[in-house]
C-alpha cells in the first residue's frame, strides 16, 4: 500500500474564458519516506496537483474526477470536515512565497500554536513548548525571538523556516512542497533545500516536491515526474531521468538548464510557449514545440511507453528510439 496514490486525476476550472483543463489524467504513487519531484514549467499543473491532494480547490467552479488516495482514503470523496482533519495532520503544504503565505498580523509563534491547538487539542502552554521545539527543529538561531516575530520582521529564509515549522507541527507523513526555494536568495535556497532534505531523512517524510529547477530536483528527489499541460509526460528514478531522458520535452528542459561543464556550450531554449489549457490540441500537447514532431503526434495522444523498468514516457517515438513497447493502461503506474 502506498501512502499516496493519485489515479487519473482530472481538474477543470470554469472560467470566463471557458473550461480550463488544468489536469488531464495524472497518475502516480508515492511510498512512505520517498521524495517525488514534480517538474515542469509554470502552468503545467504542478501546483494544481498539490492543492487537489488536499482537496483545496473551491468546489463552486472546479470539476474534479479521479482518485486521490491518501492512506487509502479518497480525498475526493471526503466531506469538508474530514478533509480538514487530514490537512496539516496527514499531509501539509509548504508554499513558494512565505511572505504571502503567512498571516501578516499574527506572530510566527501564534501561527504554529493555532495549528497544534487545532489538530492536537494542546493546552496553550504545551503548544508553546512544542512550538519552541519545532523552531529548534528548523534550525533557527534565535528561537524565542522568532516565535515573537511577525512575518515582516524576519528574513525570507527565516520566514520559510517558520512556514516549514508550521507544516511539520502535527507530524504529517506527507509534505507537499510547492517550489519552496524559488522565492529565496540563492545562498538561502541551498540552506532551505538542505534543511528539507535533512528533515525528510530524519522524520522519514514522504515529499512531493514541485519545482521547475532540475538541479533542485537532482539534489532532493528519489524519483521525478515531468509534467506538461496537465499530464505527466515522463517519470523515472532521478538518476535514470538524467541519464536517459526519453521525452523530447524533458530533453529540452535539460538543454535549457545550466549544468556543470556548461562553459562553451550554448543553452538551447525550447521554442514556443505551453498550449492554452482552455483549448488543448487533440494529439500530444507538446507537438507544436517538438523538434521530432510527426503527423501522428498532432492527431493521436501518445500512450505511456515503458523505456526501462520504472521509466515511462508519453511519446510516440519511444518505441523506435528506445526499442520499447506500449504498456497496458492498468499497469501505467510507475
Amino acid at each position: 500500500m502506498s501512502l499516496l496514490s493519485v489515479r487519473d486525476l482530472r481538474v477543470e476550472f470554469d472560467t470566463r474564458d471557458g473550461l480550463v483543463r488544468a489536469l488531464n489524467g495524472v497518475t502516480f504513487e508515492l511510498d512512505k519516506g520517498l521524495v517525488l519531484a514534480l517538474l515542469g514549467e509554470s502552468g503545467s499543473g504542478k501546483s494544481v496537483t498539490l492543492r487537489a491532494i488536499l482537496g483545496l480547490h473551491p468546489p463552486s467552479h472546479t470539476r474534479i474526477s479521479g482518485e486521490v488516495l491518501l492512506k487509502d482514503r479518497d480525498v475526493n470523496r471526503l466531506d469538508e470536515v474530514e478533509r480538514r482533519a487530514i490537512r496539516g495532520r496527514v499531509a501539509s503544504l509548504v508554499f513558494q512565497e512565505p511572505i504571502t503565505a503567512l498571516d501578516p498580523v499574527y506572530t510566527i509563534g501564534d501561527q504554529i500554536v493555532e495549528t497544534l491547538v487545532r489538530h492536537r487539542g494542546l493546552a496553550p502552554a504545551d503548544a508553546r513548548r512544542r512550538a519552541r521545539e519545532l523552531i529548534d527543529l528548523v534550525q533557527v538561531p534565535a528561537p524565542e525571538r522568532m516565535l515573537r516575530s511577525y512575518p515582516h520582521e524576519i528574513s525570507g529564509g527565516m520566514r520559510q523556516r517558520g512556514m516549514i515549522a508550521i507544516a511539520l507541527a502535527c507530524e504529517p507523513e506527507l509534505l507537499l512542497a510547492d517550489e519552496p526555494t524559488t522565492a529565496l536568495d540563492v545562498t538561502v535556497q541551498a540552506q532551505i533545500l538542505w534543511l528539507l532534505r535533512d528533515l525528510q531523512r530524519r522524520l522519514g517524510l514522504a515529499v512531493v516536491f514541485v519545482t521547475h529547477d532540475l538541479g533542485v530536483a537532482a539534489e532532493i528527489a528519489d524519483e521525478a515526474a515531468v509534467m506538461y499541460a496537465g499530464r505527466i509526460v515522463e517519470q523515472a528514478p532521478i538518476g535514470e531521468l538524467f541519464a536517459r531522458p526519453a521525452h523530447p520535452y524533458t530533453e529540452g528542459l535539460m538543454q535549457a538548464t545550466v549544468r556543470r561543464g556548461q562553459r562553451g556550450i550554448p543553452l538551447v531554449p525550447i521554442p514556443g510557449a505551453p498550449p492554452n489549457l482552455a483549448a488543448l490540441p487533440a494529439g500530444c500537447a507538446f507537438a507544436a514545440r517538438c523538434r521530432l514532431v510527426r503527423e501522428e503526434c498532432r492527431t493521436t495522444l501518445p500512450p505511456l511507453y515503458q523505456v526501462r523498468d520504472g521509466h515511462v514516457a508519453r511519446c510516440h517515438l519511444v518505441p523506435e528510439r528506445f526499442g520499447a513497447s506500449p504498456i497496458p493502461k492498468a499497469a501505467s503506474v510507475a
Partner: peptide, 11 residues
Amino acid sequence: EFVLALRAKGL
C-alpha cells in the same frame, strides 16, 4: 494566499 495556507493547515 495566506487564507489558502490557513485552510491547508486544517483550520
